[in-house]
Amino acid sequence: MFYNNAVCDIYIGKSAGAKLLQDIRNAKRNIKIVSPYLSPSLIKELIFLHNKGIKISLITSDEIEDFYGYDKNINKLIVQKRHTDEKAKQSRDSLISLSGTLLFAIIGLAVILVPVIFLLKEWKFAYGFILVIILFFVRDFIVRQIKSKRIYHYTYKQLFPFKVFISPNNGNSFNKTFIHSKIYVVDDEIAYMGSLNFTAKGIKDNHETRIRTADPNAVAGIVEEVNKIFFNSNLAERDLQFWGSQLYPEPIN
């Protein structure tokens, strides 16, 4: 898009995000953010606002800052839901019960055979240990069946609407467009643009440029452009279900 003669404030320097954060925290209805990089502390700000009822829309990339650190970003926004296969669970419970019965039988039979053989000198009963060994291997097979029985499967949903576009830098996308824009819209009334990523360094430490405008026509055009990226970009996205499976452990039972 191109818009001319917009009324705006210009800021250049450090702490370029101070006013931005103030406006975001004072949002009454909705926030739209486009930033290829994110910091966990700022994701927490969005989650806090989401829990207050503010509608959040986020556009980012799969080169998210700190994604592989200890405090991750996207798994705060992807909610794992575990589903139980009741028939498989019943089958597993039956196997567990059978395993317990076999263990009791193995121990009980051994307890009987040992005194009979060594105290009564009835050596022929030693053949009974063949049955003990057979029961042991049968139980071992059942235990392995129990461990491999899949009881749970998982699905994932977004905490609030967001898009994670695949970066061409990762070499796994036919798309050559990298969403490098930094755009922030608060209540569809205030818009920010510039070099400012939604990161702790970008907000506080880096020397950044940003403009702020409340010009109604300019903001309307910016909102339209953000919506176009969100809903009609035709860019390759990260699959939510696959990514969730990479972020979270998925024990089968």
Rank of each mutant, 00 (worst) to 15 (best):
L77V: 10
Y70I: 13
R139S: 01
S91N: 15
I96W: 03
I107C: 11
G69M: 08
F165A: 05
I133W: 06
S99E: 07
D93R: 01
Y154A: 02
F104W: 12
L42R: 09
F136W: 11
F129D: 02
V138I: 14
L46P: 13
T155I: 08
V114F: 11
V79T: 10
P115T: 01
F162S: 02
F141P: 05
S94L: 09
S97Q: 15
G108W: 00
P168K: 01
E86M: 15
Y127T: 01
F48D: 15
E63V: 12
I151Y: 01
Q80T: 09
S41A: 15
D62V: 00
K76N: 11
L135Q: 05
S94M: 08
V164M: 11
F129L: 02
V116N: 10
F141V: 06
T60V: 07
I151L: 03
S148E: 13
F125Q: 02
P168G: 02
I130H: 07
I112S: 11
L135D: 07
R82D: 08
N169H: 14
N73C: 08
K124Q: 13
H83N: 15
R82M: 14
D85S: 12
V111D: 08
S91P: 10
R150V: 13
Y127H: 06
D85R: 14
I134N: 03
L159F: 06
Y156L: 08
L120E: 13
D140T: 12
P40E: 06
S99Y: 05
Y70A: 14
A105H: 09
N169T: 13
V132A: 00
F48E: 15
I146W: 01
I107R: 03
P115L: 04
T155W: 05
S57N: 14
S41W: 11
V111T: 15
K163D: 02
K149C: 13
F125E: 07
P40D: 14
I78C: 00
Q158Y: 08
E45Y: 13
L159V: 06
G108K: 00
L46I: 06
I112N: 07
V138E: 04
F48P: 10
G128K: 03
K76Y: 08
Y70F: 13
I134E: 00
A126W: 10
I96K: 14
K149D: 08
I117V: 12
A105T: 11
F104N: 13
D66S: 14
E63G: 12
I142T: 00
L77A: 07
V164F: 05
R150G: 04
K76E: 06
I43N: 08
S97I: 09
L49R: 07
L109Y: 00
Q80D: 01
F129W: 03
I106C: 09
I146R: 06
L119D: 11
K76Q: 15
I133E: 00
T155M: 05
F165I: 02
I151S: 01
